[in-house]
């Protein structure tokens, strides 16, 4: 598996898209810091970008990589390598290379601007952590969708729809249901709704760390109580792990029975 991972990673590490992605984050972070020397303010703005873009890029890269490397995958399948190793290796390769683009693209400017001497370092670390989680989650989902769709256009379409659903439509439904059921106690429902969507969960995690918790806490004790504690953080990370592991298990399951 590690050999496959290594080659997928090198393959991507030299792809110009990885560099474009890396440069995009580098420039974004530099511009943000240049315009506004306040590290913690820049973290908030970055969050808005990361929450939407990381899943989108992860989805598109995942789908594209899968379809573009189909023949290569077939070449590997004829080698004495376990199927699970091939797909897991490719998945980790792409997820890691995207994560590195993100980490270095954003990390370097922040370090230059004195991140290590700043109080924002924990918020920043959390931002990167959720960014990496989102990458792993959405690449895994994209792989699952690709594995289930022979047709490239279809696979691509479903993957983008999935992103659109989790990034936008879900929140619309969430909002509607909160408004419709406003006469009932909503703290549990809103907590659940947040937990079920990795994008919402990441956003909430960062917002709470960025001390907007007072705005959220206004809605009721349950939310604040939950996210304000260690338990809340661990539960959130656990849910993010689930969001990663379940699609990966789907990949492994599907890969075992798929014909090439």
């Amino acid at each position: 598996m590690f050999k496959i991972l290594k080659y997928s990673f090198y393959d991507l590490a030299r792809s110009r898209w990885s560099y474009i992605y890396f440069l995009f984050y580098l420039i974004l972070a530099l511009v943000l810091l240049f315009l506004n020397n306040d590290l913690s303010k820049a973290v908030i703005t970055l969050m808005n970008v990361i929450i939407i873009l990381v899943p989108l890029i992860g989805t598109i890269f995942g789908v594209m990589y899968y379809y573009n490397s189909r023949e290569f995958t077939e070449l590997l399948l004829a080698q004495p390598i376990k199927r699970s190793s091939i797909f897991l290796g490719q998945y980790l390769g792409i997820a890691l290379s995207l994560s590195f683009s993100l980490l270095f693209g954003i990390g370097i400017p922040f370090v230059i601007y004195g991140l290590f001497n700043s109080g924002a370092i924990w918020d920043f670390s959390l931002l990167l952590l959720t960014g990496v989680f989102l990458t792993f989650i959405f690449v895994a989902i994209a792989f699952t969708i690709s594995l289930n769709n022979e047709n490239k256009i279809k696979g691509f379409g479903y993957a983008v729809l999935m992103w659109l659903f989790l990034a936008v439509i879900y929140d619309g439904i969430f909002l509607m249901s909160l408004v419709i059921f406003e006469d009932y106690p909503l703290d549990k429902l809103s907590l659940l709704g947040t937990m079920l969507n990795p994008i919402d969960l990441s956003r909430t995690l960062i917002l709470l760390k960025l001390d907007i918790s007072a705005l959220l806490g206004y809605t009721g004790a349950v939310f604040k109580q939950f996210f304000g504690r260690q338990l809340g953080l661990f539960t959130s990370i656990f849910v993010l792990c689930l969001w990663t592991v379940i699609p990966v298990l789907r990949i492994l399951y599907k890969a075992r029975s798929k014909d090439f």
């Binding site: 969050m47 808005n48 929450i51 939407i52 990034a167 936008v168 929140d171 969430f174 909002l175 909160l178 408004v179 406003e182 909503l186 703290d187 429902l189 809103s190 709704g193 947040t194 919402d200 956003r203 909430t204 917002l207 907007i212 705005l215 959220l216 206004y218 809605t219 009721g220 939310f223």
Partner: peptide
Amino acid sequence: ETIVLLRSL
């Protein structure tokens, strides 16, 4: 409670 959607796309 809808405040939980703050900063959502």
